[in-house]
Design a protein around this nucleic acid. Structure first.
Lengths: 156, 156
DNA sequence: ATTCATATTGTATATTTATTCATTTTGGAT
DNA sequence: ATCCAAAATGAATAAATATACAATATGAAT
């Protein structure tokens, strides 16, 4: 009955059903043995970026967010804006960027030479940041804040 | 003061301002010399497919419908064959592909936007897939099955 | 274990959006 | 111009969603 499972269930239900209201989703969840309130759903949906849109036939419907690329190109030196999302997983920090920007951002992180950060691996639009053993997530985020001199957290 | 002009104005205002509520839009319109009621706006927005989404910073915002022009995807629908092996290690999934194919396959995985998958990092012939914490290996593999089996997706 | 901070949640309520219904407007066809 | 039907609109209200606040749970540090 934890949050993680609830989010997974929500995503599945939205994907598989044409959900039109939060109340409806609430009932679907109850049917799946997961219970919460509308208030919680409202918050969950916002966090997951699931918004109420249109089904193209005059009706409403909740829609999963599209992974899409923002057209704006970050200016060199303002790599902060090139970070579009961050998630902790497996003790590592996954940093998302617009396509092609991962290397530039990763280089900036590497150059900072912070002890807390063991290293990074950059793909095209994703960076895998591996913290040194024993370093907390918070410490790493603190590092990034320093490096980018801006508020960067995994939360919205 | 006709409908046509109103719709055009609405589109322009939404495009140029971070409109968060219909009331707000109402005031902007009044400022532009066009007056109507919230009821009319609600109907107009639905007709134009303008829905309330998220601004990515925790706030709400009305968004114009996307014209989805997908960038060219190498060999559409044939990404499945590009996976030559998969192995679980350290809670992550290593996916092998022929040389040069990793990015294309990774993009396909990313685009699916599955909650279970925190992110991927693609090299030249290897993809490192990091599941979100608490997600089982089976769930991830289920995801991949879905992503690569559903060649016939219904668009709405 | 205890303390503290932070995150999560429900209840009640406020805010926002959609719809009903009556009225007005618009655009033909005569 | 007059009539009619369809479309558009506003006022009021219903429906749906977001949030303030208080309570509880969780986790880290001691």
């Amino acid at each position: 009955m934890n949050r993680e499972q609830r989010l997974l269930l929500i995503e599945r239900l939205i994907r598989q059903n044409a959900v039109t209201t939060q109340e409806e989703l609430l009932m679907l969840m109850e049917g799946a043995g997961m219970k919460c309130t509308q208030a919680t759903l409202s918050r969950d949906l916002r966090q997951m970026g699931i918004s109420r849109g249109f089904d193209g036939r005059g009706g409403y419907r909740y829609l999963l967010p599209e992974r899409r690329v923002e057209p704006d190109e970050p200016v060199p030196g303002r790599e902060t804006e090139a970070i579009t999302a961050m998630t902790w997983a497996k003790g590592m920090l996954l940093i998302k960027t617009p396509p092609g920007f991962a290397p530039a951002v990763a280089i900036k992180i590497d150059r900072a030479g912070r002890y807390e950060i063991a290293g990074t691996v950059a793909g095209d639009d994703t960076i895998l940041l591996i913290p040194r053993d024993g370093v907390s997530n918070e410490a790493v985020e603190e590092c990034l804040n320093t490096i980018f001199e801006s508020k960067t957290t995994t939360k919205n």
